[in-house]
């Protein structure tokens, strides 16, 4: 394909995909009722009053802090459990390895909707209801992180580990000093994917958390979205505020994500 044509197509698709988000900005900062004006309005007016009024009505800082606590702890734990699990799957032979593989894979297939009732019971018996732990521990591992690390570790030449083994380097040290640094893209991808799911979590904290003081941002924003239903600009502003942090983290980590998933099953082990 010719280069100019490719470039044009790329630009068109990119713009088409981002358009709804762009339009949210137009509605949030535009004239009243711009969502439905015919002909459509495509230029944002940058009236930030609605955004400001939303900010004034929410205890934003407290909720942002809660979300940061939950998301950061979840990410750290997912990296830990994911790297260990991925390493076990790729490098260690033990009976039951394929069972563990199925266990991790099967979690993705469990229908989530009705599960929350028995999950509530489990959290109750672990005395975890209405704590930060309720939003962290159940999500402290993920199938995708385990598989990402597995794929990455499988790509590392076996000789690395053999040398390490001969040199008397422990597994922990090998993992920390050799394998993990080489798997940096897998780390970035895990950070991004965990951030997305943890930050956007909504139903779970709504049911498992009752005190306002530890509620994450997304829950409070979604409540406000319902409350502002009749005020489009405020509604769009809330949605926009909900999007901004994720977009920010995405901008910082997105360039790693392709290299992160390029591994494992796609490349044969030497």
């Amino acid at each position: 394909m010719r280069a100019p044509l490719t470039l044009i197509l790329r630009a068109v698709i990119g713009m088409a995909w981002i358009f709804p988000v762009y339009w949210l900005i137009v509605v949030a900062t535009g004239a009243r009722g711009s969502a439905y004006s015919i002909p459509p309005v495509f230029v944002p007016l940058f009236h930030f009053l609605p955004v400001a009024s939303v900010l004034a009505h929410t205890h934003l800082l407290q909720h942002v802090l809660n979300s940061v606590i939950v998301t950061t702890s979840t990410i750290v734990l997912v990296l830990f459990t994911g790297a260990l699990g991925g390493y076990a799957l790729s490098e260690v032979r033990f009976p039951g390895r394929s069972l563990y593989f199925l266990l991790a894979l099967g979690v993705m297939m469990l229908p989530q909707q009705a599960l929350m009732v028995p999950q509530y019971v489990v959290l109750y018996h672990l005395r975890m209801l209405n704590t930060y732990a309720a939003m962290i521990i159940p999500f402290a591992t993920s199938t995708s992180s385990i598989f990402l690390f597995r794929q990455f570790f499988m790509r590392l030449p076996t000789s690395y580990r053999d040398i390490a083994s001969v040199e008397g380097v422990s597994t922990a040290r090998y993992l920390w000093r050799v394998a993990l640094p080489l798997a940096r893209p897998a780390v970035a991808a895990t950070v991004l994917l965990t951030f997305i799911s943890s930050w956007n979590m909504f139903q779970w904290p709504l049911v498992m958390i009752s005190s306002k003081s530890i509620q994450p941002l997304e829950v409070s924003l979604t409540f406000y979205m319902q409350a502002f239903e009749g005020h489009w600009r405020q509604l769009a502003s809330v949605a926009l505020l909900a999007l901004l942090p994720v977009i920010g983290v995405f901008a910082l980590t997105q360039r790693y994500i392709v290299s992160a998933v390029a591994g494992g099953e796609l490349a044969q082990k030497e």
Partner: peptide, 9 residues
Amino acid sequence: TPVVATSII
């Protein structure tokens, strides 16, 4: 993006 936020658009 969270589904709740973008589905309204």
